[in-house]
Every structure is written in structure tokens, then in C-alpha cells.
Design a protein around this nucleic acid. Sequence first.
DNA 1: ACCTGAACACCGTTCAAGT
DNA 2: ACCTGAACACCGTTCAAGT
Lengths: 209, 209
Amino acid sequence: MSETIKKPYHHSNLYQALLEAGVRLLEEKGVNGFSLREVAKRAGVSHAAPYRHFKNKSELLKALALYGFRKLTEGIQAVVEAAPEDPETQLVESAQAYVELVMVHPAIADLMFGDRSADMEFCDPEQAIAMNSFSGLANIIARGQQAGVFIEGETLELAITAWAQVHGFALLFRSSQKRERFGLETEPALKLQLRKSCEMLLTGIKRTE
Amino acid sequence: MSETIKKPYHHSNLYQALLEAGVRLLEEKGVNGFSLREVAKRAGVSHAAPYRHFKNKSELLKALALYGFRKLTEGIQAVVEAAPEDPETQLVESAQAYVELVMVHPAIADLMFGDRSADMEFCDPEQAIAMNSFSGLANIIARGQQAGVFIEGETLELAITAWAQVHGFALLFRSSQKRERFGLETEPALKLQLRKSCEMLLTGIKRTE
DNA sequence: ACCTGAACACCGTTCAAGT
DNA sequence: ACCTGAACACCGTTCAAGT
């Protein structure tokens, strides 16, 4: 009787344990090798236990995608604060942070931006979290315009353009196969090309007269 | 005896029938709802029959992805021929073709560019087919440089930048959810924003004092 | 309240066997 | 040569039952 040492069923916080096991499994096996049953096994519970905490597999993956969006937002926030008066540097360094996240957590990037993100119906507060990454970029553009560094015009249109550039670069070279094919297999080479691409976004690829 | 009318087992060309059933299933159910057993059922054969023609599920998906790459290459080729002397128009219209492919065949785009494309190990001739889409873009840049329309510098670096821009735009707005969120739910609105983004790529977003 | 174990309907893949 | 049917090891999900 009284307080026994014996654990009630398992460790105290299954929700968190599932998320952590999920991240690890994701990084080991990728999105396609990811199964709810394996996550449960790694967390030391039966395969039905996760359903106490997540409506289904998609909801667990959504939680992991949101983790990625938070990381990305933090990364962008950090580089903005590191160069508070320099929108150009903020833009280039945000791009580096974006690419780095995709390189370090490719499977989570797949969740954030891949085909499963179509299935994931974010509720409003979740949408907000996912959107904060874009807002970070849009704010850089907005402040850059106010400072007279970027051209005038609809901020949203500039931000979409910058975002597409960075997003496309990151996703194109997510696969090591493509990095090798373009001689960008080393991190410095990749970062240098990204820097050049950002520079071209800034100054254009069209010859001026 | 002699030639009977009775079909040997099924329709004559199972390989082609599997591809066609595959495209339809893909467009109905998306990449995640795609199963080899269902493709076989739709082609009217047993679930094991596809293994006579494809090593496994991935090989069928690879064949479908290659179909997408061929379509994209054709699309780019067509717009180049439609404006043979105008690299700028070629670039913008290629972008439109790229985006259109992703919008019209989202599930095939997922195969071409999504996380499954990491699993897909292209052999050399297949790589070449997949790469032709990029080569089309790179050639536009190269000819534009020769014509003095685009800035000088490494063609590959310019091409990567343009490609990233177009690719990022196409993938960002592949989901109707995001198109709606940015007021780009109609096709004209989306095309207009793409045109603007291409324009910014050409002339830059940095203010020239 | 929280978890288990059996059950169901689906997978991908393999293989002996049929024509 | 081409296809079938049974079999195996895996899924995601549900649900009555246990503590």
C-alpha cells in the first residue's frame, strides 16, 4: 500500500516521450520508414497507446512538423537580432538558416514542406506557428523597404519572391544526389552558391543596358 | 486449336496498362493513397502481376516521375521555340510551364520533387531525362548571356538561381491552402505573381540608389 | 484516466504452382 | 514467358477489457 515505487504503467509523460521517439525514428528512417507502431515500441508502450495522445498518425507528424517550423522561426529570429541594422545581411543569413534546417533535419523538412503537408490540416493557432517563419522573412523585407534598402512596391510580393528563392534553393539541394551533381557536396560550396543566388536576387540577373 | 480469340491472360500490354492505371490512381488518391495492389486491380490482374514488369513499387513510381520530367522538358522546349529570339520571355514562360505542370499534376510533381525522389535511384539514362528539364532552363540562360541580355558570369550559377526561384514558387503554391492564404487562388492571380517574381529575379529587389 | 491485446482491413513482397 | 493464389511480415485504426 501507500506510494509504491512501481511505475503506474510507464514513464510519466508519454506525450513527450512519443514526440522524442518520433524525432529519432524520423531521422533514422525518414518519412517513409516512419510508423506509429515503431514509435510506440520505442517509447515502451503498446501500439495502441499513442491514440490516447494523438488522434492518428497524421497528428503526430503534424506535431513534429510544427517543431520544425518553430526551429526555423527561431533561426530567422536569431540572425535578424545578430544584424539589427542590416536588412541585406538578414536576408542572406535567413536563407542560410533555412537551408541549414533542411540539411540538418531533412525528414522534418519533408513533413513541413513535402506532400504530407497537404494532408495536414492546421487549425488556426498551428497555422500561425507555421506562418511565423514566413512572417520573419516578410518583416525583413518590410524593414528593408522602410530603410530604403529594397525597392518600393507591395511588401507581400517582394516577400513571396524572396521566399520562393530561398525555399527553392533549400529543397532543390536537400538531396545529396543533387548536391553532388552540381559540385555542391561540401557545406562551404553550398553556402557560397546560396550567397551568390541571394546576391542575384538582390541585384538581378538582367544586364542593365 | 489454332489462333483462339480468347486472350492469353489479359490485355496485350500490361506494362503500359499499369502505367496508365498508375497515373489515374495517383491523380485520384495522391502519392500517399497510391498502392501497387490497387493499380493491379485496376489493370485487371492479380496483385503479384506487376512484379513481372517492375522490380517493386518504387520502380513504378520512378517510371511515373520520369513521365513528369518528360512533360516538363517538352513544356519548356515549346515555349523556347515559341519565342526563339527572346530569352527573357523564354524564362518567364518556362516558369509558367513549370508551375502549370505542378498545378495540373500535383501528385506527379510530388514524385518528381518530393521526399520519395530521394529513394529513387536513377540510373544514368534516367538521370539524363530528369536533368533535361534543368538543361532547358540552363540553355535559356546561356543563350541569353550570349545575346547580352543576361549578366555575365558562370552560366551554371545563374541557372541554379533561376531554377531555385521557379522551383520554389511552384512548390510553395502547389497546395491550394497556401494559394488561398496569399490571395492567389485564381489562375490569373497566380500567373501574375509569378510574372512579378520573375521580373524581380531579372531586375533585382535591391534599390539602385 | 490510461493502457493492453485481439481483431480488422489493408499493405509490399516472395514463391511455388499453374497455363 | 506470364500470371495466380497463398503466405509472410508489416501497417493504421478500433474497441472491449483490464488496472
